[in-house]
Amino acid sequence: MSPINIAVLVKEVPDPEGTFSFDVDGRAQTAHLPRVPSLFDENAVEAAVQIKEQCGGRIVALCCGPAEAERTVRYAMAMGADDGVLIEDTERAWDSLGAACLLAAAVRRLGGFDLILCGREAADTGSGLVGPYVAQMLSIPFLTLVTSIETGDGAFHVRRLWEGGEDVFACIPPVLLTVCAETNTPRYPTVLKVLGAKKRPLQRWNAHELAAAVPVPPARLLGRYPSAAPGNCDFISGDSAEALAQGLFSRLRERKVV
């Protein structure tokens, strides 16, 4: 296949392993958390780099987020993206529709992509909306939950998850694909590549200049809070493994679950 121009959409998120708290208005209090590239987006970058290694072409990493999200764009560049674009914006962290609008405007401004890749969902919002909406705003076809991408015969041969297996598609470019963790194992960039990526130019675009009108989120937020654990565990006591097993088994019998 001839060289392929790829755009990868990446997001920087508060570390999902950290403790999340929210104020009464449902605003995230996550300033104490380290910020990391969103999990599946690393798979998307890896998929792009593998395709470039096979076919040649260029990769642009695009990110919508605060100024500090530059780190995530540079991480994608260290993994193998040629160029980076940061759409500076502080309001769209939990607003997928708004982020999609800005990213679509950015992709349109750059133009000429054969393939747009992103993760199946962000590690924070978990909605999986951005990819499909960017594609539809740009009037290009898309497939979600992709587990493998191969190139050949002027098409991408793509597998996507299905109940009990996978569906196989031939996708005629341009196309947008959202990528699952099964697709690949993201590489760790070498120190040399990390240092190299720091020196390369990175474009910073202003969200307000990019898209004049960003839609208002359609829902009214009633509350956002950490998921509560029931926390009523009955700890079995006993001085031997046999006693513990007996204690558990008799309770399960009483409760008629065995």
């Binding site: 359609p218 009633l222 956002r224 950490p226 998921s227």
Partner: peptide, 15 residues
Amino acid sequence: SQVGGKVVVREAYSG
């Protein structure tokens, strides 16, 4: 659910 089930969000949709 958000953040892999760690966070719960309640939202009202009209229309």
